[in-house]
Design a protein around this nucleic acid. Structure first.
Length: 126
RNA sequence: CAAGCAGAUCACCUUAUCGCCGUGCCUCAAAAUUACUUGAGACAAGGAGGAAAGUCCGGACACCAUAGUGCAGCAUAGCGGGUAACACCCGUCCGUCGUGAGACGAGGACAAGUGCAGCAGAAAGAAUGUACAGGUAAGGCUGUAGUGAAAUCAGGUAAACUCUAUGCGGUGCAACGCCAUGUAAACCAGCGCCAGAGGGUUGCACGCCCGAUGUUGGAGGGUAGGCGGUUUGAUCCUGAUAGUAAUAUCUGGACUAGAUAAAUGAUAAGGAGUCCGCCGUAGGUGGAACACAGAAUCCGGCUUAUGAUCUGCUUUUUAU
């Protein structure tokens, strides 16, 4: 399958994000944390994703952009793991909880761990 | 060569793989043809800055009679010019600093009023003392000496109050316009009622505006969402003319990001430049770091952060 991440797969709705934060569960592998929630979405979409970096830890917009791009990139490369294994619909929010700018390898390995954990916890259990 | 001063330019490049955004064009689908719309896919050419930053000034644009008037308040301040405008820019005079290239300047008025002034000094804005000389009817009446930056001189001081001149309505694209799902007692207009309670505003005053309850008609309002505003502009490049210059006018050419939980990326391999070490004529070779920083309605400035390169100039010493 293709490793794309288009605008349709972005989580944008304010109300969905509020629901995600209030009702969602989380998996953490420092310095990355995933918050997820089972949701009912449009037919052709499986997962909506958003990415966030705290302004408190990174004052400069350049740094926040860099981390968000790394998170998106690593999710893009690994999202096939989830899509191949589920029929439910989810909303995802990835947070970066560290205080230093990471390199790609670290983010990519943590991303893989988180997604594998997510599959074990939610999909294989149901 | 060293230490400085001023100005200009650039903002790493190439390739491969995988991606993101809007635009153009083509194909397919919704749907039976064309057009339009929506969705999917292929291709093509594009896709952060000199400060995009701080939000400190100045505009454009939009809306609001709560927009008016007066006072208050704030800003600016040699002179001349530029500009849409400015607190910006250019020229020039003066002052201060520096050996110098140059830099900096809150540089209007104390002949309206009020206030303030260390040390020294008899006395510091209130009056006059001492010595000598001169003078008078008489007298600090006059001159000199003495203290001090300044001793009656239209004294100094306005990053002291103040005065003068000029300018300033407010709120900001989350402005504002349109579309539209479900749903209330709300919204708008006319008529009536006439008590005008109460409320609104830029600090104050005046002024201005809204305004209880009834009835008729209209379809609107808040919330979530979508579209427009939204990128062709005081634009950029080239040349000519006018001007010391800022800049203006004209000729020719270009179209150059439009995201919205916010695109412009990730990884890998080479190469350039910079610094350091070694060999050294060019140059070769190994290593290190590669800045500040991310458009958000759009322009003109200022300020701050920051990596290089180039040009001109100054000073000291040496050499010719």
């Amino acid at each position: 399958m293709k490793e794309t991440l288009g605008i349709k797969e972005k989580l944008k709705s304010k109300t969905e994000i509020e629901l995600l934060f209030s009702e969602g569960k989380s998996i953490s592998r420092h310095p990355v944390r995933l918050i997820y929630r089972k949701a009912t979405l449009q037919k052709d979409i499986t997962i909506l994703t958003a990415v966030s970096v705290s302004k408190r830890n990174f004052k400069k917009a350049v740094d926040r952009n860099r981390i968000k791009r790394l998170l998106r990139e690593s999710y893009r490369k690994n999202k096939y793991l989830v899509l191949h294994n589920t029929t439910h619909q989810f909303t995802f929010m990835f947070l970066y909880t560290g205080k230093k700018i990471p390199d790609y390898e670290l983010i990519a390995s943590k991303m893989k761990e988180i997604i594998q954990k997510f599959i074990a916890k939610e999909i294989e259990a149901s």
